[in-house]
Each structure stands twice: as structure tokens, then as C-alpha cells.
Amino acid sequence: MNEPGPGARGNPFFRNAAAKIASLPMILTALVVFVGGTAWTVVYSFTNSKLLPKLNFVGLDQYRRLWSTERWVVSVENLLVYGVFMLVFSLLMGFVLAALMDQKIRFENTFRTIFLYPFALSFIVTGLVWQWILNPEFGVQHVVRSLGFENFTFDPLYNQDIVIYGILIAALWQGTGLIMCIMLAGLRGIDEDIWKAARVDGIPAWKTYVFIIIPMMRPVFITSLVLIGAAIVKVYDLVVAQTGGGPGIASEVPAKYVYQNMFYAQNLGQGFAASTMMLISVAVLVVPWAYLEFSGRQRHG
């Protein structure tokens, strides 16, 4: 595919000159923003930059401070709880919905439209709607109480211990439709003969799903996992809109800590260290996947 350009005989640098010039935005984005920007942030996370970035190295001081700051530790704990539940429930709900949709049901398009529309909405809209529904004075709690259950309590957004689950409800509402769609595509891609063979052998449908179909859908699950995982680490707008990090600091998340330190507290070094920690957590997740994907591709090519 390496077509020799018009100036092929000259300096190889000018071969394909038009393509190279046209690709400049991509090259600059890749090298300057993605590689350069990331390296820059990592390097400056070892400095004591405050209001302005300064190359005054202090070793791991920012990281030590980071991990002894309560707000950050709470943020990380929240992210872990949120992340585990988000992963489990997204995969579970996504798969179950997809399996239900795959039963030759009527109104499939209607159901799909209903499950997927929240994905078109922003996290701000999502957060604000659920803030309203979960409002204890007017929302679900009030309605159930007015039905006669006077002691019914459901105020996740005002209770420090469970606020993260209130955010989870909203996040699942917004995101599971996408996972359902990916899973459904995966289910549709499975050879019909597998089902026939399982039925001939008299294997119940649920067993076929658990022991045959799900293992066959491994790539789909891994893709979903990576997608959900990358989204979990980035969670920011939803929290800003739904709780603002409250009550107190009970629903703070790392992305918010970064923003807070970089653009409000004028504590750049902390922001850089925190964002580097975010980068590391994504890398732990994505690198093994990219490695598998890449080596798989080479086998095919």
C-alpha cells in the first residue's frame, strides 16, 4: 500500500509530501498533546508547583501529601466502590437486557430506543434529574411515605454512607443502554448452530448462556469492561451535577480533586500528582487489554 508519491525519486522526506502535510494535525495531536502533555504532567507532578508550574523537584512529596489528604483518600474509596458496582451491574444489566431482547420479542426497536436514549443525554442532565427524583422532600421517599409507609427512608443524596449508591443509580441509568447494545450485537454474532446443538443435547437455556455463550462472548465482555473501566475513572460531571461532592466530602471523586486543585486551590503539583494516579489506574486496566488485542492482530496479519 506504500504508493510511491510523485516525488519518489527525490529526498524520501518529501515522498508523499501532501499526505504528510495533511496529517500534521494528527501528528501534532499525537506527539504534542498526548505524548508531550502526558509526559509534562507526570514530570511536573514531582515538583512543588503552586500557582504556576515550576521545575523545582521535590521527589515524591506531592504523592505523600496526596495520600495523607482525607479528601483524596475518600475520593479513591468512592471510586473503588462506585467502580466495582458499576462494572458488575453494567455487565449484568447489559447482558440480561440483551439476552431478553434476543428472545425474538415484539417491539424490539421500541425497547431498544427506551434503553438507549439516556445515553444521548449529558451527565449534567442525568445528575440533575436523579437529584430531583431522589430528593427526600418531594421524590421517591416522599411519595412512598404518603402512601402510608411513614417510616420509609430513602435519601441517598443526603446520607454520607450511601450517597455513592445514589450516584450509581443515575450512572447505570445513563450507561447500561450502550452495554446492552454491544452485548446484543455479540449475541447476534453467535452461530445459530450452537443453540441448535445445545437444544438437541437438552441443555437448559440458562446453562447454555452461562457455560457456552458467555465464554464465547469473551471479546465482547472485555471490550465492555475496558469501556466501562475508562468511563469510571473519568467520572466527574455526574457528581458535580448530582451532589457537588457532598454531603460534606462524602461523594468526592478523583477527577474532581484534580480540577479543584488545578483551577481553584492553585495547588498545581497536587493536581498533577492526582491526575498521574488516574493515569496509572487506567494504564493498569488498558495496557493488558491493548497487549492482548495487539498480539491478536499480529497473528491475523
Partner: peptide
Amino acid sequence: ILIIGAFIPYQVMLYPM
């Protein structure tokens, strides 16, 4: 690089940007 970059949290590249 571009594709890998899609997974980098925006927070990492905010200030350089």
C-alpha cells in the same frame, strides 16, 4: 498513539492543553 491516547484521562492533559 492516537488510539492509546483516547484512554488517557482528560485530567492528565488539561493543564498542558
